[in-house]
Amino acid sequence: MSRSKKSRSGGSLAARKEADFKSKRKVAVQKASIGKGKPSGNRQQEAQTSQQQQQSNVVVDKRIGSKKPIALVTPNSQKAAVAPPKKPKPKAKVLSPEQELELLENNTRLANLLDESDAGQELNDVDQQWLDKQLARHQQLMEQLGLIETDDEPEARNDEDRLWSSLNSGSLDQYKD
């Protein structure tokens, strides 16, 4: 029993293959899979895109930088020298009259100048003006706080004192009828 070998060649029984069979075959269109999750390598892509967005969202103002003033006019013009901008002076704190009087009385310069003027030394013009100004302010504060009497009040008291002294002197004869 010998069997004959089967040949694998198609021979005349098989369908004939054409050379361009692939071009005639329909290519299956791949559709995007829906609901299958994110594609591979997505974590790295998201990190890179978020960094790029952060960098692109930051607006850099090119004007910010040196605070050095820049001359806006040409050197040939009359206004070549640019003055630096003036800084606003800090507002002085408003002190109560008691606090201001205390500061004046504790001022060492004022005390030294008063000592010099009492000793008979002559002060220069600037010091004398400053001393006069401080003494005038001291006088105002004392009157404002009622620590000294104004000019009108002593005369009124002197009149009253004269009347009382005349009554107490015992010479009431002039008031008799």
Results as ranks from 00 to 15, higher is better:
V29K: 13
D173G: 15
D151E: 13
S171K: 11
F21R: 10
M142Y: 01
A156T: 10
N112G: 08
S2W: 02
K17G: 12
S12H: 06
E116T: 03
A81R: 07
Q30G: 11
A119E: 12
E143V: 07
A83P: 01
T74I: 01
P69N: 06
S40I: 13
E143D: 03
V60C: 03
R137A: 15
N112K: 14
S23Q: 11
G35Q: 04
L123S: 00
V82S: 06
R43S: 15
R16V: 10
Q128K: 15
I70P: 00
L103S: 09
L13M: 04
S40K: 08
A156K: 07
I34M: 02
D127W: 01
S117C: 00
N107P: 00
T108L: 14
A47P: 00
R109C: 02
Q121G: 04
V82R: 07
S33R: 09
N106W: 00
G120V: 08
Q51E: 12
K38N: 14
R63F: 09
R63N: 15
S77D: 09
D152Y: 05
K62Q: 14
R162A: 14
G65S: 09
S7Y: 05
A15I: 09
M142S: 10
K133L: 04
S56K: 14
V126N: 09
A92K: 14
S171W: 00
T108P: 06
L172I: 10
E98M: 10
E155A: 12
S12M: 06
L95R: 07
P88K: 08
S23I: 07
Q30C: 03
A28D: 03
L103F: 02
R8D: 08
S33Y: 00
T108W: 05
D159T: 06
Q140P: 01
Q53M: 11
D125W: 00
L104F: 04
A83N: 07
A47N: 07
T150K: 11
G10D: 03
V60A: 09
P69R: 06
S96D: 09
R162S: 09
R3G: 13
E160D: 15
A81G: 04
E46K: 08
S171M: 06
K24N: 13
I64L: 11
K22Q: 06
A14E: 10
I64K: 11
L104Y: 02
L110D: 00
L103C: 03
L131G: 04
K6G: 14
R25V: 15
S166I: 05
A111W: 04
E122A: 14
D161M: 09
R109L: 12
K31P: 01
S33D: 08
V82I: 12
V27P: 01
P154L: 10
G65E: 03
L104H: 01
K22L: 12
A28N: 02
V94C: 02
I64D: 02
G146S: 12
D115Y: 03
Q53T: 11
D61Q: 10
D118A: 15
Q99V: 15
A28L: 08
L163N: 05
P85Q: 05
W130K: 06
